[in-house]
Design a protein around this nucleic acid. Structure first.
Lengths: 203, 203, 203, 203
DNA sequence: GATGAATGAGATTTCATTCAT
DNA sequence: TATGAATGAAATCTCATTCAT
């Protein structure tokens, strides 16, 4: 089986292999977006991909490995996109850029984010290497602490505030899941304003 | 079968019946808290209650009915507790009391709230009579609008703010799920402060 | 348990006992007529009788025994009714009277006959003491043979003809099951005419 | 899953697939013939086929689909056989040929017919596409009416007579079920004679 | 006599996974 | 590489039956 040999250091991943993996991952995303995590069985995924269930098991050692691959793929894109949009700037500008980048990614990658969140919610035991909300929290908290040091932000518990900011970001994604035609720009504008008022040092 | 006769309006539910139902509901809560919603099969619940699977089916016509009963039970307690703690007062005082009441309930009913949220997340098709996040959103939004009318709160989209406030409340519960020894009082104090700054009219 | 003691020769079957048994048997008949044999579970029967399942098991040692009791009851009435209507007369007159009596009983005991046939079709292993199509076949065959001896009936295989006559009787009952407003008198008239032509010696 | 892809119009059903389906259908027929419809569980069928229950579900989406497949298979053969034996001739010749063809098929396909009748009796909710006793009744009734028009047959209710003829055919099958060594040729000869006398215009 | 409660076997179905080709 | 085929565990639900009160 391919996925087992890979660990033996065979560097050359064939083109077909990569294409199949990408196709399967895309179908997992579609299936979760349409049916939800619980209904996303390998049979359903295979049906959408018009391939047999066996192919999936061939390319991914187990369902857990497959879900991990989806998380890696989506979170990789997500993180790269957001990182590219956050300049090395003043804390508040970086934070605002971070939030706006999240919203912009959501506009073009709604299905992917829904899948990412669905998997991370349901697959408790999944190690979910790479995708760790914890990391985000620490980065945001560092920004907040820096802003406090500069006197731009008021006094608060930076970790809780970071967690809260991410919770608000998540709630935007959750709302988008429920309501396909949500006005994302308006929503993120309100959230940025909310956070702005919540953290800035009142003069 | 008990659950079928009940619809005939037999008001007297026997003591044993009530005890068993309560026991089973408690075991569902424990099981979800320990294993998550997906792993909470009737077999697992029965094992925890040290009863056979059949007993559960005897007292609850189906798994859906059982989950609804758990929701009814927990949400009933939750709503009653919170309602009792929210005085008919100024918008901000009511909002603060609402948030504090949520935190206080969480302190004594952590498992119950985890189960409530897990069920409402996963059981899409469940009608979930009674428990509707939408209702909460509308009540909070009404409070916010009233505060804006009085000039106490600044200008913002009341529905988005309400959704955000509940998202922050939910994030406290989610954090509590991850970290059993979370300092809830500190957390809710920070969230209340966050919201206070986010909505009040700056003089 | 009552039903076990009965074999010990306790002649006095209490009034309550008899009433309960009759009530339960009536409910079995109703349930089979409404839902069919397969759906006629003890729970369904109990629900119709507004008694608990336990009562049924109390009065009838097993489901098989219960079904036997229904068969005994219905077939007893059926046989008594038909026997009373068949005079000791010429073969053809007796045969015609037999068929008409069957139709007359069907008119007033449709549900009972449906239940009787449903049980005898489905309960293969049931011994069905008392109710034996075989007996009917022999009686009819004897009539036919007598008619042949007298020269009234033509030459045919009396057993097959008897079986066929009963099959036609049964098909009337089956039609009545499918079509509640069947014109039974017209139907039996046609069948009697059919049989008349089929068996009589053409002059 | 095979049975789901089939709807996509994949005309090529693999050899193994066909063989398995045929094997399973044959085992259903055997099981019903031996144990009756009610006892014919998937477990019993699988046991006879020496395959696991899962294999059945793999090839047939549900038990209902499986039973429909059995009906299609058996009724298809049955209808084709009978149709081929009924020439376009005078009503009485056609009717006689129809009855004889039924008997001939029964001689070589006893188990199959028992299964067909058992399924159609018990599976009420099954749509049972294709196999409709009603259709047979209408065809026979049309023959009878034509014979009446020609003056070959006497005056009678054609629908009731058609129903009766089919009831006699069914009673032959039922007798064959009870008595494995039944002399089918003798039986059908008697039934044909019976019907002949019952319907022909006496000169 | 009566009943609520409990049980456990068995039915259908879904699904991740394995395997031979 | 790919796939159809098979498997078996587990899940929900039904039901006849047993039992303590």
């Amino acid at each position: 089986m391919r996925t087992k040999n890979k660990t033996e250091g065979q560097a050359t991943t064939s083109f077909i292999e990569q294409a199949r993996r990408a196709q399967i991952i895309a179908c997992v995303i579609d299936t979760i977006a349409e049916l939800g995590y619980e209904q996303a069985s390998l049979a359903q995924v295979g049906q959408r991909a018009k391939i047999s269930k066996g192919v999936i098991t061939y390319h991914f050692a187990s369902k857990e490995v497959l879900m991990q691959a989806v998380v890696d793929e989506v979170f990789g894109q997500f993180a790269a996109f957001v990182t590219a949009r956050v300049p090395d700037d003043q804390p508040w500008d970086m934070l605002r850029a971070f939030l706006q980048a999240n919203a912009d990614f959501l506009k073009t990658h709604r299905k992917q984010l829904l899948a990412l969140f669905a998997i991370s919610r349901n697959a408790h035991d999944l190690t979910l290497q790479g995708y760790s909300p914890e990391l985000d929290i620490e980065r945001i908290a560092a920004l907040l602490t820096e802003g406090q040091r500069q006197g731009t932000f008021r006094d608060f518990d930076a970790r809780i505030m970071a967690t809260s900011i991410l919770a608000l970001r998540d709630s935007l994604i959750a709302q988008s899941a429920k309501q396909a035609d949500l006005d994302i720009d308006h929503y993120i504008h309100e959230i940025i304003s909310l956070i702005d008022h919540a953290i800035r040092q009142s003069s």
